[in-house]
Each structure stands twice: as C-alpha cells, then as structure tokens.
C-alpha cells in the first residue's frame, strides 16, 4: 500500500513537472523566435505547446490527488495522445522555422522532442506499474 502511494506521488509529480516543462520550453527555457509583424510557424507551435503543457500538468495533478487506480489508468491513457501531440506539433502539424540558424529550429524543436519522449517513457512505465498491480490482483483472486 505504501509502495503504491509512493509510486502515485513520484509519477504524479513527474508528470506534473513535465507538463510545466513542456509549457515553459518554448516560452522560457528555449524561447521561439521573436515575431515582429509576421507570425511564423514557431509562434503557433508555442501557443499549442503552452496549452498542451497546461493540460498535461493538470492531468499530473489529478494523478497526484486521485487514489482510485482505475481512474489513474484512464488518466494515464488519456496522456498518451497529448504527449504524442507535444512531438507532432513542432515536427509535422505546425512546425518551426526552417532555417537551422533560427533559435526555434536548433533549440525549441529538439527540446520539445526530448521533453515529449521523456513523457512517453514516464507514462508507459507508470501504465506498466499500474496494470502490473492489476495482474497480481487478478492472480491472487
């Protein structure tokens, strides 16, 4: 029971922090190019990532607060498409500036890919831990 609670705290906090990381990557950590008059692709990617990051952080918070395992499994599953979008927005759907001398191309894009891939790994490990408990539970019955 204690282990389960620890796992909930650790993974909930990790997902919450990663959500904040996603939101702060294009704004604070690796800011996208400054748009003057014309808004470039990276501007829209930034807006989308802020929204995604906030949603992921909110799910992380719920994962911290909610005790019921089934709900946590559902929340973790709902994270997967959001995490996929973290990577897909800057690479395919919205993109960033094309020139490799632009800060969004060399900084924001790889940072978002790394943040997204970390989240994928964390979510999959969490799901594995949650469903493994389920298997053990069924076995015991």
């Amino acid at each position: 029971m204690k282990l389960q609670q620890n796992i909930r705290w650790i993974f909930g906090s990790l997902i919450l922090l990663n959500g904040l990381l996603v939101a702060s990557t294009p704004t604070v950590l690796f800011p996208v190019c400054k748009s003057g008059g014309v808004r470039m692709a990276c501007y829209y990617t930034k807006q989308a990532e802020i929204g995604l990051g906030a949603a992921i952080a909110f799910i992380g918070l719920l994962l911290l607060l909610i005790q019921k395992r089934e709900i946590r499994i559902g929340l973790s599953l709902s994270l997967l498409p959001l995490v996929a979008l973290v990577i897909v927005y800057p690479t395919y759907l919205l993109g960033v500036c094309h020139s490799n001398s632009m800060s969004c191309h060399v900084g924001t894009l790889p940072a978002l890919k790394v943040a997204g891939s970390i989240l994928v790994v964390i979510t999959l490990i969490y799901l594995r831990l949650l469903t493994r408990k389920e298997e053990e539970h069924v076995d015991r019955r």
């Binding site: 490799n100 060399v106 900084g107 790889p110």
Partner: peptide, 13 residues
C-alpha cells in the same frame, strides 16, 4: 544520445 545529441547545433550556436 537522448539529451545531448539533439542539441548539437544549439551548442554550436
């Protein structure tokens, strides 16, 4: 490879 390699051009910049 995961954390340093993607930032190669950023390091150069």
């Amino acid at each position: 490879v995961w954390f340093i390699y993607p930032f190669g051009h950023y390091i150069g910049m």
